[in-house]
Simulated assay, not measured.
Amino acid sequence: MSHNTKFSLSWVATAFVIIVLAIISFIGYNAGYRIGPNISLIKTRSLTITNLPEHSHVFTDYAPRGESSKSALSIPLVPGTHMVLVTSQNYFPWTTLVTIPDNKNIKVRALLVPKAVSGTLLKGAEAKTALSYIENQTLPTIDKPLVLANGCTLVSLSKDKRTIIATPTTTPSCTPPVYLCASGTCAPTIIYSPKIPPTAILAYPKHTDAFLVLVGKNLYALSLDPRSPRTFARVLHGISPKVASEKDGTVVVSDQSSVYTIHL
């Protein structure tokens, strides 16, 4: 066999191996596998982000992952903790950390706070009802906490009214949020320390992982997860505002002679 023939056969064999590996990689990639540490194969899981306005841009770990055409977007991610960023016109950016487990897919609801919050002015009986909620609104305490995270986190204000604390519940049906736990131990965690005592702490409408806090003349929206990066946005600025939540979660505001709801 000539030298040229041997070289040709070697080239063909090499090309065949490369093609086979490319096919295997393509099939594995589409099946949701990625190359992990020590050249191991890792099965990806799906992260579904809901509550997305049309044309929202989604990023994970600073890499663009797509633009939403519907209210939800699903993306594959390897197990572990990832930074998620969602930007959308007319909304404050939403940033959070999401932990993807090895054995299941995850769904999260984006906390997109409008940059310009609209409201509805209330009059007559509606205004009186709203004012009664505002007059009876109390700050959450250890004995009467604000229940969030699907019942798995209790939010309260410290006795000196300087810190807002999230405490994991101990009920067997609850899995405490990862940000309240370290090295297998879960404990009360400070989630916000305003410069002046807050006058109201409410659940953010239609969210179990966010809350509203009234500090001075400003109402802020915060994610329950205190880790950085964190969503922190001003919802409104008033003259002497007071706020409360009605039974259906609607947020009502009184400011001087005006009484209104806000749309979040």
Score class of each variant (00 low, 15 high):
96 T>V: 13
113 V>M: 08
122 L>Q: 02
95 T>N: 06
129 T>Q: 10
92 F>Q: 09
130 A>W: 14
213 V>A: 00
154 L>V: 07
138 T>R: 05
80 G>A: 08
153 T>D: 06
119 G>C: 07
153 T>F: 06
124 G>P: 14
104 K>G: 13
157 L>P: 12
155 V>Q: 10
206 K>L: 11
189 T>D: 03
170 T>S: 12
187 A>G: 12
208 T>I: 09
85 L>Y: 00
121 L>A: 14
190 I>N: 11
103 N>F: 10
169 T>V: 14
153 T>Y: 00
205 P>K: 02
113 V>L: 10
123 K>N: 13
132 S>E: 15
107 K>S: 15
122 L>W: 07
194 P>E: 04
126 E>G: 06
209 D>T: 14
207 H>K: 13
210 A>F: 12
93 P>E: 15
140 P>Q: 06
141 T>M: 00
95 T>V: 11
101 P>T: 06
180 L>I: 00
94 W>Y: 10
145 P>A: 07
190 I>R: 00
145 P>M: 05
174 C>M: 02
114 P>A: 09
174 C>Y: 05
207 H>C: 08
85 L>A: 07
188 P>I: 01
85 L>C: 09
163 T>L: 01
110 A>H: 02
101 P>W: 01
171 T>D: 08
151 G>W: 08
104 K>F: 02
133 Y>S: 03
199 T>K: 07
151 G>L: 06
134 I>N: 08
213 V>C: 01
125 A>Q: 15
90 N>H: 12
155 V>F: 07
117 V>S: 10
106 I>R: 14
152 C>M: 03
94 W>A: 11
106 I>D: 12
183 S>G: 02
112 L>C: 09
114 P>C: 11
208 T>H: 03
82 H>F: 11
124 G>W: 06
82 H>M: 05
165 I>D: 01
93 P>K: 12
159 K>F: 03
109 R>D: 11
112 L>V: 02
100 I>F: 04
186 C>I: 09
195 K>V: 12
126 E>S: 13
204 Y>E: 04
104 K>C: 12
179 Y>C: 01
165 I>L: 11
123 K>E: 13
100 I>H: 03
154 L>T: 14
136 N>S: 07
106 I>M: 13
181 C>P: 09
202 L>D: 00
121 L>T: 15
105 N>Q: 02
183 S>L: 10
180 L>Y: 04
211 F>P: 04
138 T>K: 07
199 T>E: 07
122 L>M: 08
152 C>Y: 03
179 Y>H: 10
120 T>M: 05
194 P>D: 09
191 I>V: 10
99 T>K: 10
117 V>K: 02
161 K>M: 09
195 K>M: 06
198 P>H: 03
99 T>Y: 00
152 C>H: 05
98 V>Y: 15
109 R>L: 12
177 P>W: 11
118 S>D: 14
106 I>G: 13
186 C>P: 01
93 P>R: 13
128 K>V: 15
141 T>K: 00
158 S>M: 03
135 E>Y: 15
210 A>I: 11
152 C>Q: 03
161 K>W: 04
147 V>K: 08
191 I>Q: 03
82 H>G: 06
80 G>I: 04
126 E>Y: 05
184 G>W: 00
178 V>A: 10
86 V>S: 13
95 T>M: 12
102 D>H: 13
83 M>C: 14
128 K>A: 15
176 P>V: 03
103 N>L: 09
167 T>L: 10
98 V>D: 09
209 D>N: 15
163 T>Q: 04
190 I>E: 11
189 T>H: 00
